[in-house]
Design a protein around this nucleic acid. Structure first.
Lengths: 204, 204
DNA sequence: CGTTACATGTAACGATCGTTACATGTCAAC
DNA sequence: GTTGACATGTAACGATCGTTACATGTAACG
Protein backbone atom coordinates (compact mmCIF):
# COMPACT_ATOMS: atom_id res chain seq x y z
CA UNK A 1 0.00 0.00 0.00
CA UNK A 2 1.12 3.51 -0.75
CA UNK A 3 1.90 5.80 2.10
CA UNK A 4 0.38 9.23 1.96
CA UNK A 5 3.73 10.74 1.06
CA UNK A 6 4.11 8.42 -1.89
CA UNK A 7 0.77 9.18 -3.42
CA UNK A 8 1.40 12.86 -2.88
CA UNK A 9 4.70 12.44 -4.70
CA UNK A 10 2.99 10.86 -7.68
CA UNK A 11 0.42 13.62 -7.90
CA UNK A 12 3.22 16.12 -7.42
CA UNK A 13 5.06 14.78 -10.45
CA UNK A 14 1.96 15.17 -12.54
CA UNK A 15 1.71 18.75 -11.42
CA UNK A 16 5.35 19.48 -12.18
CA UNK A 17 5.05 17.94 -15.63
CA UNK A 18 2.40 20.42 -16.63
CA UNK A 19 3.41 23.48 -14.61
CA UNK A 20 7.19 23.29 -14.64
CA UNK A 21 9.38 23.84 -11.66
CA UNK A 22 10.78 27.32 -12.07
CA UNK A 23 7.78 29.01 -10.49
CA UNK A 24 6.58 26.27 -8.21
CA UNK A 25 4.52 27.55 -5.30
CA UNK A 26 3.17 25.52 -2.43
CA UNK A 27 -0.33 26.92 -2.13
CA UNK A 28 -1.45 26.57 -5.76
CA UNK A 29 0.16 23.15 -5.83
CA UNK A 30 -1.63 22.11 -2.65
CA UNK A 31 -4.93 23.41 -4.00
CA UNK A 32 -4.63 21.25 -7.11
CA UNK A 33 -3.58 18.20 -5.12
CA UNK A 34 -6.52 18.65 -2.77
CA UNK A 35 -4.37 19.27 0.26
CA UNK A 36 -2.77 22.24 1.98
CA UNK A 37 0.62 23.90 2.01
CA UNK A 38 0.77 22.99 5.65
CA UNK A 39 0.64 19.29 4.83
CA UNK A 40 3.17 19.47 2.05
CA UNK A 41 5.68 20.87 4.49
CA UNK A 42 4.59 18.30 7.02
CA UNK A 43 5.24 15.40 4.68
CA UNK A 44 8.32 16.61 2.85
CA UNK A 45 9.92 18.79 5.51
CA UNK A 46 10.44 21.75 3.23
CA UNK A 47 9.97 22.86 -0.32
CA UNK A 48 13.41 21.60 -1.16
CA UNK A 49 12.61 18.20 0.30
CA UNK A 50 9.50 18.15 -1.81
CA UNK A 51 11.53 18.85 -4.92
CA UNK A 52 14.03 16.19 -3.97
CA UNK A 53 11.32 13.58 -3.54
CA UNK A 54 9.75 14.47 -6.86
CA UNK A 55 13.07 14.39 -8.67
CA UNK A 56 13.96 11.06 -7.15
CA UNK A 57 10.68 9.54 -8.25
CA UNK A 58 11.01 11.08 -11.69
CA UNK A 59 14.50 9.76 -11.98
CA UNK A 60 13.51 6.19 -11.20
CA UNK A 61 10.60 6.40 -13.60
CA UNK A 62 12.79 7.60 -16.45
CA UNK A 63 15.41 5.05 -15.63
CA UNK A 64 12.83 2.30 -15.76
CA UNK A 65 11.36 3.10 -19.15
CA UNK A 66 14.80 3.80 -20.60
CA UNK A 67 16.06 0.47 -19.39
CA UNK A 68 13.42 -1.46 -21.31
CA UNK A 69 14.10 0.66 -24.38
CA UNK A 70 17.78 -0.14 -24.17
CA UNK A 71 17.09 -3.85 -23.83
CA UNK A 72 14.76 -3.93 -26.80
CA UNK A 73 17.18 -2.04 -28.98
CA UNK A 74 20.33 -3.85 -27.96
CA UNK A 75 20.44 -5.81 -31.18
CA UNK A 76 20.21 -2.77 -33.47
CA UNK A 77 23.69 -1.51 -32.82
CA UNK A 78 23.61 1.40 -35.22
CA UNK A 79 23.07 5.09 -35.44
CA UNK A 80 19.42 4.22 -35.79
CA UNK A 81 19.30 3.65 -32.06
CA UNK A 82 19.20 7.40 -31.87
CA UNK A 83 15.99 7.34 -33.86
CA UNK A 84 14.44 4.78 -31.54
CA UNK A 85 15.35 6.99 -28.63
CA UNK A 86 13.85 9.98 -30.37
CA UNK A 87 10.59 8.14 -30.96
CA UNK A 88 10.52 7.28 -27.30
CA UNK A 89 11.20 10.85 -26.28
CA UNK A 90 8.50 12.47 -28.39
CA UNK A 91 5.86 10.02 -27.25
CA UNK A 92 3.24 11.92 -25.31
CA UNK A 93 3.85 10.15 -22.03
CA UNK A 94 7.58 10.87 -22.07
CA UNK A 95 7.68 14.27 -23.70
CA UNK A 96 6.73 16.20 -20.58
CA UNK A 97 9.36 14.39 -18.59
CA UNK A 98 12.10 15.44 -20.95
CA UNK A 99 10.76 18.96 -21.15
CA UNK A 100 11.08 19.13 -17.39
CA UNK A 101 14.61 17.79 -17.56
CA UNK A 102 15.70 20.52 -19.94
CA UNK A 103 14.12 23.13 -17.74
CA UNK A 104 16.05 21.62 -14.87
CA UNK A 105 19.26 21.80 -16.86
CA UNK A 106 18.85 25.50 -17.50
CA UNK A 107 17.98 26.15 -13.88
CA UNK A 108 21.02 24.18 -12.80
CA UNK A 109 23.26 26.24 -15.05
CA UNK A 110 22.01 29.39 -13.34
CA UNK A 111 21.66 28.10 -9.77
CA UNK A 112 24.04 25.20 -9.33
CA UNK A 113 23.69 25.24 -5.54
CA UNK A 114 19.95 24.63 -5.68
CA UNK A 115 19.35 22.56 -8.77
CA UNK A 116 22.80 21.25 -9.63
CA UNK A 117 22.56 18.03 -7.62
CA UNK A 118 19.13 17.23 -9.01
CA UNK A 119 20.29 17.63 -12.55
CA UNK A 120 23.44 15.63 -12.03
CA UNK A 121 21.52 12.78 -10.51
CA UNK A 122 18.94 12.87 -13.27
CA UNK A 123 21.42 12.84 -16.13
CA UNK A 124 24.44 10.95 -14.83
CA UNK A 125 22.71 7.62 -15.06
CA UNK A 126 21.01 8.00 -18.36
CA UNK A 127 23.96 9.45 -20.21
CA UNK A 128 25.89 6.34 -19.30
CA UNK A 129 22.96 4.39 -20.63
CA UNK A 130 23.10 6.19 -23.96
CA UNK A 131 26.81 5.72 -24.23
CA UNK A 132 26.29 2.06 -23.57
CA UNK A 133 24.17 1.93 -26.69
CA UNK A 134 26.91 3.29 -28.89
CA UNK A 135 29.40 0.93 -30.50
CA UNK A 136 32.63 0.71 -28.57
CA UNK A 137 34.70 2.73 -31.01
CA UNK A 138 32.28 5.63 -30.75
CA UNK A 139 32.52 6.05 -27.03
CA UNK A 140 35.31 8.54 -27.06
CA UNK A 141 33.92 11.56 -25.28
CA UNK A 142 33.88 14.04 -28.13
CA UNK A 143 32.31 11.60 -30.57
CA UNK A 144 29.69 10.45 -28.11
CA UNK A 145 28.83 14.07 -27.44
CA UNK A 146 27.70 14.67 -30.99
CA UNK A 147 24.63 12.43 -31.17
CA UNK A 148 23.62 13.61 -27.72
CA UNK A 149 23.95 17.21 -28.84
CA UNK A 150 21.94 16.51 -31.96
CA UNK A 151 19.24 15.02 -29.81
CA UNK A 152 19.33 17.91 -27.34
CA UNK A 153 19.26 20.56 -30.01
CA UNK A 154 16.43 19.01 -31.95
CA UNK A 155 14.41 18.36 -28.85
CA UNK A 156 14.91 21.94 -27.77
CA UNK A 157 13.61 23.10 -31.10
CA UNK A 158 10.69 20.71 -30.91
CA UNK A 159 9.83 22.13 -27.50
CA UNK A 160 9.83 25.66 -28.85
CA UNK A 161 8.27 25.25 -32.26
CA UNK A 162 6.25 22.07 -31.90
CA UNK A 163 7.34 21.16 -35.42
CA UNK A 164 7.69 17.41 -35.02
CA UNK A 165 7.97 16.76 -38.73
CA UNK A 166 10.90 19.03 -39.38
CA UNK A 167 12.85 18.01 -36.30
CA UNK A 168 12.31 14.32 -37.01
CA UNK A 169 13.45 14.78 -40.58
CA UNK A 170 16.51 16.63 -39.41
CA UNK A 171 17.34 13.72 -37.15
CA UNK A 172 16.90 11.27 -40.01
CA UNK A 173 19.15 13.46 -42.09
CA UNK A 174 21.83 13.23 -39.43
CA UNK A 175 21.45 9.46 -39.19
CA UNK A 176 21.74 9.30 -42.96
CA UNK A 177 24.96 11.30 -42.82
CA UNK A 178 26.50 8.95 -40.30
CA UNK A 179 25.41 5.90 -42.25
CA UNK A 180 26.75 7.27 -45.50
CA UNK A 181 30.14 7.94 -43.95
CA UNK A 182 30.18 4.49 -42.42
CA UNK A 183 29.42 2.82 -45.74
CA UNK A 184 31.94 4.91 -47.64
CA UNK A 185 34.65 4.14 -45.15
CA UNK A 186 33.83 0.44 -45.26
CA UNK A 187 33.96 0.49 -49.05
CA UNK A 188 37.28 2.33 -49.07
CA UNK A 189 38.76 -0.09 -46.56
CA UNK A 190 37.52 -2.99 -48.64
CA UNK A 191 39.12 -1.69 -51.80
CA UNK A 192 42.40 -1.11 -50.04
CA UNK A 193 42.30 -4.60 -48.61
CA UNK A 194 41.82 -6.11 -52.07
CA UNK A 195 44.70 -4.11 -53.47
CA UNK A 196 47.12 -5.11 -50.73
CA UNK A 197 48.87 -8.45 -50.29
CA UNK A 198 46.62 -11.20 -48.91
CA UNK A 199 49.03 -12.27 -46.20
CA UNK A 200 47.42 -10.24 -43.43
CA UNK A 201 43.91 -11.16 -42.31
CA UNK A 202 41.39 -8.32 -42.73
CA UNK A 203 41.32 -6.01 -39.71
CA UNK A 204 38.47 -6.63 -37.34
CA UNK B 1 23.93 62.05 -24.98
CA UNK B 2 22.29 59.13 -23.29
CA UNK B 3 18.98 59.62 -21.62
CA UNK B 4 18.65 58.23 -18.13
CA UNK B 5 16.49 55.40 -19.40
CA UNK B 6 19.14 54.37 -21.90
CA UNK B 7 21.95 54.17 -19.44
CA UNK B 8 19.71 52.30 -17.06
CA UNK B 9 18.97 49.86 -19.87
CA UNK B 10 22.65 49.24 -20.45
CA UNK B 11 23.31 48.59 -16.79
CA UNK B 12 20.20 46.42 -16.73
CA UNK B 13 21.56 44.20 -19.47
CA UNK B 14 24.75 43.72 -17.54
CA UNK B 15 22.72 42.67 -14.55
CA UNK B 16 20.61 40.23 -16.55
CA UNK B 17 23.69 38.69 -18.13
CA UNK B 18 25.04 37.67 -14.77
CA UNK B 19 21.83 37.05 -12.81
CA UNK B 20 19.52 35.60 -15.43
CA UNK B 21 15.93 36.61 -15.91
CA UNK B 22 13.89 33.81 -14.37
CA UNK B 23 14.10 35.26 -10.86
CA UNK B 24 14.46 38.92 -11.65
CA UNK B 25 13.32 41.18 -8.84
CA UNK B 26 13.12 44.93 -8.89
CA UNK B 27 14.58 45.80 -5.53
CA UNK B 28 17.83 43.80 -5.70
CA UNK B 29 18.24 44.98 -9.26
CA UNK B 30 17.72 48.59 -8.26
CA UNK B 31 20.17 48.22 -5.39
CA UNK B 32 22.89 47.02 -7.74
CA UNK B 33 22.15 49.73 -10.28
CA UNK B 34 22.28 52.38 -7.56
CA UNK B 35 18.68 53.39 -7.99
CA UNK B 36 15.33 52.37 -6.55
CA UNK B 37 12.48 50.11 -7.56
CA UNK B 38 10.35 53.22 -7.66
CA UNK B 39 12.47 54.70 -10.41
CA UNK B 40 12.64 51.55 -12.47
CA UNK B 41 8.88 51.54 -12.65
CA UNK B 42 8.95 55.25 -13.33
CA UNK B 43 11.25 54.89 -16.31
CA UNK B 44 10.01 51.64 -17.79
CA UNK B 45 6.37 51.71 -16.79
CA UNK B 46 6.32 48.20 -15.39
CA UNK B 47 8.49 45.17 -14.91
CA UNK B 48 7.38 43.87 -18.26
CA UNK B 49 8.31 47.12 -19.95
CA UNK B 50 11.69 46.88 -18.31
CA UNK B 51 12.16 43.40 -19.72
CA UNK B 52 11.04 44.55 -23.13
CA UNK B 53 13.53 47.40 -23.18
CA UNK B 54 16.34 45.10 -22.12
CA UNK B 55 15.45 42.49 -24.69
CA UNK B 56 15.24 45.07 -27.43
CA UNK B 57 18.65 46.43 -26.60
CA UNK B 58 20.09 42.94 -26.32
CA UNK B 59 18.58 42.02 -29.63
CA UNK B 60 20.14 44.94 -31.46
CA UNK B 61 23.49 44.25 -29.85
CA UNK B 62 23.47 40.62 -30.93
CA UNK B 63 22.29 41.57 -34.36
CA UNK B 64 25.13 44.01 -34.71
CA UNK B 65 27.97 41.68 -33.80
CA UNK B 66 26.42 38.85 -35.80
CA UNK B 67 26.17 41.03 -38.85
CA UNK B 68 29.88 41.74 -38.91
CA UNK B 69 30.58 38.06 -38.37
CA UNK B 70 28.42 37.16 -41.33
CA UNK B 71 30.12 39.70 -43.55
CA UNK B 72 33.61 38.53 -42.66
CA UNK B 73 32.69 34.91 -43.27
CA UNK B 74 30.73 35.39 -46.43
CA UNK B 75 33.52 34.04 -48.57
CA UNK B 76 33.92 30.81 -46.66
CA UNK B 77 30.73 29.22 -47.84
CA UNK B 78 31.15 25.90 -46.13
CA UNK B 79 30.22 23.94 -43.10
CA UNK B 80 33.16 25.62 -41.46
CA UNK B 81 31.06 28.72 -41.06
CA UNK B 82 29.49 26.84 -38.21
CA UNK B 83 32.88 26.69 -36.55
CA UNK B 84 33.38 30.44 -36.95
CA UNK B 85 30.02 30.99 -35.39
CA UNK B 86 30.93 28.68 -32.54
CA UNK B 87 34.13 30.56 -31.86
CA UNK B 88 32.14 33.74 -31.76
CA UNK B 89 29.59 32.27 -29.38
CA UNK B 90 32.04 30.90 -26.83
CA UNK B 91 33.98 34.15 -26.67
CA UNK B 92 33.63 35.59 -23.21
CA UNK B 93 31.83 38.73 -24.29
CA UNK B 94 29.15 36.79 -26.19
CA UNK B 95 28.78 33.70 -24.07
CA UNK B 96 26.57 35.31 -21.45
CA UNK B 97 24.31 36.72 -24.11
CA UNK B 98 23.69 33.30 -25.59
CA UNK B 99 23.24 31.77 -22.16
CA UNK B 100 20.52 34.30 -21.55
CA UNK B 101 18.91 33.48 -24.87
CA UNK B 102 18.67 29.79 -24.02
CA UNK B 103 17.18 30.62 -20.67
CA UNK B 104 14.69 32.77 -22.51
CA UNK B 105 13.87 29.93 -24.84
CA UNK B 106 13.05 27.57 -21.98
CA UNK B 107 10.98 30.23 -20.27
CA UNK B 108 9.11 30.88 -23.50
CA UNK B 109 8.33 27.19 -23.87
CA UNK B 110 6.74 27.21 -20.43
CA UNK B 111 5.14 30.68 -20.46
CA UNK B 112 4.51 31.63 -24.08
CA UNK B 113 2.25 34.53 -23.10
CA UNK B 114 4.96 36.27 -21.13
CA UNK B 115 8.22 35.38 -22.83
CA UNK B 116 7.09 34.08 -26.22
CA UNK B 117 7.22 37.43 -28.04
CA UNK B 118 10.67 38.22 -26.63
CA UNK B 119 12.06 34.92 -27.75
CA UNK B 120 10.54 35.13 -31.20
CA UNK B 121 11.92 38.59 -31.74
CA UNK B 122 15.34 37.56 -30.51
CA UNK B 123 15.62 34.48 -32.69
CA UNK B 124 13.62 35.25 -35.81
CA UNK B 125 16.23 37.61 -37.17
CA UNK B 126 19.31 35.67 -36.41
CA UNK B 127 18.03 32.32 -37.60
CA UNK B 128 17.46 33.90 -40.97
CA UNK B 129 20.98 35.17 -40.76
CA UNK B 130 22.33 31.69 -40.16
CA UNK B 131 20.31 30.26 -42.98
CA UNK B 132 21.70 32.93 -45.22
CA UNK B 133 25.15 31.58 -44.52
CA UNK B 134 24.24 28.12 -45.72
CA UNK B 135 24.62 27.23 -49.39
CA UNK B 136 21.40 27.49 -51.30
CA UNK B 137 20.84 23.76 -51.63
CA UNK B 138 21.06 23.33 -47.87
CA UNK B 139 18.32 25.73 -47.01
CA UNK B 140 15.53 23.21 -46.97
CA UNK B 141 14.06 23.45 -43.52
CA UNK B 142 14.94 20.02 -42.21
CA UNK B 143 18.51 20.20 -43.44
CA UNK B 144 19.06 23.69 -42.11
CA UNK B 145 17.72 22.55 -38.77
CA UNK B 146 20.53 20.07 -38.25
CA UNK B 147 23.52 22.41 -37.93
CA UNK B 148 21.44 24.69 -35.75
CA UNK B 149 20.51 21.78 -33.55
CA UNK B 150 24.13 20.68 -33.34
CA UNK B 151 25.06 24.15 -32.25
CA UNK B 152 22.23 24.34 -29.73
CA UNK B 153 22.94 20.95 -28.24
CA UNK B 154 26.65 21.52 -27.91
CA UNK B 155 26.19 24.97 -26.46
CA UNK B 156 23.71 23.60 -23.94
CA UNK B 157 26.26 21.03 -22.90
CA UNK B 158 28.96 23.66 -22.70
CA UNK B 159 26.72 25.72 -20.45
CA UNK B 160 26.17 22.81 -18.12
CA UNK B 161 29.56 21.16 -18.05
CA UNK B 162 31.91 23.97 -19.01
CA UNK B 163 33.87 21.46 -21.05
CA UNK B 164 34.90 23.65 -23.94
CA UNK B 165 37.40 21.18 -25.32
CA UNK B 166 35.01 18.29 -25.69
CA UNK B 167 32.18 20.33 -27.14
CA UNK B 168 34.47 22.04 -29.61
CA UNK B 169 35.89 18.71 -30.70
CA UNK B 170 32.41 17.32 -31.13
CA UNK B 171 31.58 20.25 -33.37
CA UNK B 172 34.70 19.67 -35.43
CA UNK B 173 33.75 16.02 -35.69
CA UNK B 174 30.38 17.05 -37.09
CA UNK B 175 31.97 19.43 -39.57
CA UNK B 176 34.31 16.64 -40.61
CA UNK B 177 31.35 14.37 -41.21
CA UNK B 178 29.64 16.88 -43.45
CA UNK B 179 32.85 17.57 -45.36
CA UNK B 180 33.52 13.90 -45.86
CA UNK B 181 30.08 13.32 -47.29
CA UNK B 182 30.42 16.32 -49.53
CA UNK B 183 33.74 15.10 -50.93
CA UNK B 184 32.51 11.55 -51.42
CA UNK B 185 29.45 12.73 -53.27
CA UNK B 186 31.52 15.01 -55.46
CA UNK B 187 33.89 12.15 -56.28
CA UNK B 188 31.01 9.83 -57.08
CA UNK B 189 29.37 12.40 -59.30
CA UNK B 190 32.67 12.95 -61.04
CA UNK B 191 33.15 9.26 -61.77
CA UNK B 192 29.65 8.94 -63.11
CA UNK B 193 30.15 11.93 -65.33
CA UNK B 194 33.29 10.43 -66.82
CA UNK B 195 31.54 7.11 -67.49
CA UNK B 196 28.55 8.65 -69.24
CA UNK B 197 28.43 9.97 -72.82
CA UNK B 198 29.96 13.39 -73.26
CA UNK B 199 26.99 14.83 -75.12
CA UNK B 200 25.37 16.35 -72.08
CA UNK B 201 27.16 19.13 -70.23
CA UNK B 202 27.95 18.27 -66.62
CA UNK B 203 25.07 19.09 -64.27
CA UNK B 204 25.49 22.31 -62.43
C1' DC C 1 10.16 85.08 -10.19
C1' DG C 2 6.95 81.66 -11.49
C1' DT C 3 5.82 77.82 -14.08
C1' DT C 4 6.54 73.49 -15.94
C1' DA C 5 8.55 69.03 -16.96
C1' DC C 6 11.38 65.65 -15.36
C1' DA C 7 13.63 63.17 -11.66
C1' DT C 8 13.82 61.28 -7.05
C1' DG C 9 12.79 59.88 -2.03
C1' DT C 10 9.72 57.89 1.53
C1' DA C 11 6.32 54.94 2.69
C1' DA C 12 2.92 52.18 2.09
C1' DC C 13 -0.62 48.96 -0.25
C1' DG C 14 -2.33 44.36 -1.09
C1' DA C 15 -0.75 39.99 -2.56
C1' DT C 16 1.98 35.99 -2.18
C1' DC C 17 5.80 33.48 -0.49
C1' DG C 18 7.83 29.40 2.69
C1' DT C 19 7.29 28.20 7.15
C1' DT C 20 5.53 27.62 11.91
C1' DA C 21 2.59 27.51 16.35
C1' DC C 22 -1.11 25.49 18.14
C1' DA C 23 -5.08 22.76 18.36
C1' DT C 24 -7.73 18.86 16.75
C1' DG C 25 -9.00 14.66 14.58
C1' DT C 26 -8.25 9.53 13.46
C1' DC C 27 -7.27 5.05 14.50
C1' DA C 28 -4.67 1.10 15.78
C1' DA C 29 -2.23 -0.98 19.90
C1' DC C 30 -1.79 -1.99 24.53
C1' DG D 1 -10.16 3.19 27.67
C1' DT D 2 -6.15 5.25 27.35
C1' DT D 3 -2.05 6.19 24.97
C1' DG D 4 0.55 7.49 21.12
C1' DA D 5 1.75 8.11 16.38
C1' DC D 6 0.17 9.99 12.31
C1' DA D 7 -2.72 13.21 9.83
C1' DT D 8 -5.12 17.54 9.27
C1' DG D 9 -7.20 22.42 9.89
C1' DT D 10 -6.80 27.34 11.14
C1' DA D 11 -4.24 31.14 11.48
C1' DA D 12 -0.55 33.65 11.59
C1' DC D 13 4.52 35.14 11.10
C1' DG D 14 8.01 37.80 8.71
C1' DA D 15 9.77 38.49 4.21
C1' DT D 16 9.44 39.88 -0.43
C1' DC D 17 6.92 40.92 -4.47
C1' DG D 18 5.20 44.67 -8.20
C1' DT D 19 3.09 48.77 -7.88
C1' DT D 20 1.30 53.28 -6.27
C1' DA D 21 0.23 57.77 -3.56
C1' DC D 22 2.24 61.67 -2.22
C1' DA D 23 5.70 64.95 -1.53
C1' DT D 24 10.06 67.02 -2.86
C1' DG D 25 13.92 68.35 -5.48
C1' DT D 26 16.11 70.21 -9.85
C1' DA D 27 16.75 72.83 -13.74
C1' DA D 28 15.34 74.97 -18.02
C1' DC D 29 12.16 78.45 -19.93
C1' DG D 30 8.72 82.23 -20.09
Amino acid sequence: MLTRKEELTEALIGYLLTHGLSDLSLRPLAAELGTSARLLIYHFGSKEGLLAAAMDAMHSHLRGTLQTLAENDAQEGDARVLRQFWDWAVAAENFSYLKLLYELQILAARHPETYGPFWQKATAGWLELIKGLLPADKQKAAIASLPIAVFDGLFLELMSTGDRQRTTRALDYFIGLVEEVRLNRAAAANKQRQASTRKRPPPR
